Amino acid sequence: MSLGDDNEASGGYGGTGQTRTRLPDRGGDVYGGARRGGRSSSRSLVTVVGVVVLLIAAIAFANRGGDDSASSKDTGNKPDTASTAASGNKPVKSTTGGIPSGFRQDQTGAESAAANYAVALGSAEMFNKSQRDAILQAIITPSRVSDFETKLDQAYTADFNKNVGLNDDGTAPSGYTFVSRTSPVGTKATTASSNSATVEVWCSGLLGLAGENSTNPVTNSWFTITMQLQWIDGDWKIVTHSQKEGPAPVPGDDRASSADDMAKAVEEYGGFTYAR
């Protein structure tokens, strides 16, 4: 799965995968020489998969909202132009707790909110109790905040942090950089009205520890998040949240970067404010 209130704060949020490994070309670096591809039976992969399952179980405690009434718009062969083209609306200029806020009260605003909220929920800040609570306060409808806090507190335990390779308190071990980022690829509103919407967000995620001899290297995964949103107090807020695997593309033959390059990239490349 968080904080100042400046316009660039959304870049601080980031959010796992499968690998086909071969012997590294450079010894001592779990990143160097490895190619991302199909499945591997390595212990690190098993750990990451376990983490994903636990996160899904923790967050998806509520029913999915809405129905699939909008599915009739599907062409069967390719998406409508409107579903992939930018709306032309400007990104929001305000933030709440470092997360973009002040979205439009229409379908594109709901999709933009869902994309930005997916980034926050998939960020490294979710592994810190105080930062996680701040994220939930900013994006969850007030009546559901307590439920989300309880469920996630039960998931983000010391044992859970150890499984990811973190210290008990959710911090990265000395010499390592923890990576947890979610990058929305596209959004789809299955239902939408002036006061409620159900939005699916197709995402790519990164999770792991970047560092020499890491046993939990950063891996990639693909998943779809479904959010039921409610318009309340002048903005969109999450009522329910669920997640499922895929759609996942065929893995390419890109050579994995070194641990140093991965850590440097995470530190130097900020995130985006997503607008439909």
Rank of each mutant, 00 (worst) to 15 (best):
M1F: 12
S2L: 07
G4Y: 04
G4T: 04
G4R: 04
G4Q: 06
D6Q: 10
D6V: 09
E8V: 08
A9F: 09
A9Q: 10
G11L: 06
Y13K: 00
R20M: 12
R22T: 12
R22K: 12
R22D: 09
R22W: 09
D25T: 13
G28R: 10
D29L: 00
D29C: 01
D29K: 00
Y31Q: 06
R39Q: 14
R39A: 12
S41P: 07
S42C: 07
R43C: 03
L45W: 11
V46Y: 08
V48C: 11
V51Y: 04
V52F: 15
V52C: 03
V53E: 08
I56F: 07
A57G: 01
A60V: 00
F61P: 00
A62R: 13
A62P: 00
D67Q: 09
D68V: 07
D68A: 08
A70W: 09
S71Y: 10
T75C: 09
K78V: 10
A82L: 10
S83F: 15
A85G: 09
A85F: 07
A86S: 11
K90E: 06
V92D: 09
T95D: 12
G97F: 14
S101G: 06
G102N: 03
D106F: 02
E111H: 10
A118H: 06
A118L: 07
G122D: 01
E125M: 11
F127C: 07
Q131H: 15
Q131M: 14
R132H: 03
D133C: 02
L136E: 09
A138R: 01
I140Y: 03
S143Y: 14
S143I: 15
R144T: 08
V145K: 09
F148A: 03
E149K: 14
T150Y: 12
D153F: 02
D153Y: 01
Q154R: 15
A158L: 02
N161Y: 03
N161C: 08
K162L: 05
K162S: 15
V164W: 02
V164G: 09
G165R: 01
L166W: 02
G170A: 10
T171M: 03
T171A: 06
A172K: 00
P173T: 04
G175E: 04
G175H: 02
F178D: 05
F178W: 05
V179P: 02
T182N: 08
S183W: 12
S183E: 15
P184A: 01
G186Q: 13
G186K: 10
T187I: 10
T191H: 03
A192K: 01
A192I: 07
S196C: 08
S196V: 11
T198Y: 06
E200N: 08
E200T: 06
L207I: 03
L209Q: 12
L209S: 13
A210W: 04
E212R: 11
N216A: 15
P217F: 01
V218Y: 01
N220G: 06
S221D: 15
S221W: 15
F223V: 03
T226W: 00
M227R: 00
Q228R: 07
W231M: 08
G234C: 09
D235S: 01
W236L: 05
I238Q: 02
S242I: 01
E245K: 10
G252E: 05
D253K: 12
R255W: 14
R255Y: 13
D260S: 14
M262Q: 13
M262I: 14
A265Q: 11
E267A: 13
Y269H: 11
G270Y: 14
F272I: 14
T273C: 05
A275V: 12
A275Y: 13
R276W: 06
